[in-house]
Amino acid sequence: SAEDNLGPLPENWEMAYTENGEVYFIDHNTKTTSWLDPRCLNKQQK
């Protein structure tokens, strides 16, 4: 699965689903949400 390739979410991040079944990500560090997987963003920065 995609999660196996990317590994676990960063600390204090949570994956959630909208009512429509779309995946989004919650950053409890900054109390924000994102459509972008933080694991993908980390890979792009390196």
Rank of each mutant, 00 (worst) to 15 (best):
N20C: 11
G7V: 09
N29Q: 08
D4S: 14
Q44L: 07
H28I: 05
E3H: 12
E22L: 05
G7Q: 07
I26E: 03
A16F: 03
S1L: 06
N42C: 13
K43N: 15
L6V: 09
A16R: 07
P38C: 00
T33R: 04
Q44R: 15
V23H: 08
E22R: 06
K46W: 04
K43F: 12
I26P: 00
K46N: 11
D37R: 05
K31A: 07
P8L: 06
E14L: 04
N12Q: 10
N12Y: 07
N29R: 13
E3Q: 13
P10G: 04
P38R: 00
E11F: 13
G7R: 08
T33L: 02
E22D: 08
K46V: 15
N5C: 13
P8G: 07
E3N: 11
A16K: 07
C40F: 13
Y17P: 05
E11A: 12
S34I: 00
L36F: 13
I26C: 06
L36A: 09
A2R: 10
A16S: 11
K46G: 13
D37Y: 02
N29G: 12
E19Q: 12
D4P: 08
D37K: 03
E14W: 02
G21E: 12
P38N: 00
C40N: 13
L9E: 02
T30C: 08
Y24C: 03
G21H: 11
L36G: 06
P8N: 09
Q45S: 13
E19A: 13
N42F: 12
L6A: 12
E3K: 09
N20A: 13
T18L: 08
F25T: 02
E11S: 12
E19G: 12
A16L: 06
E3L: 09
Q45F: 07
Y24V: 03
N5D: 10
K43G: 13
A16N: 06
I26W: 03
G7S: 10
W35V: 03
N5Y: 08
H28Q: 06
P8H: 07
E3P: 07
Y24L: 04
K43W: 11
T32F: 05
E11I: 11
N12L: 07
W35T: 04
K46D: 14
D37A: 03
N12M: 08
T30P: 00
K46R: 10
E3S: 10
D37T: 02
I26H: 02
V23C: 14
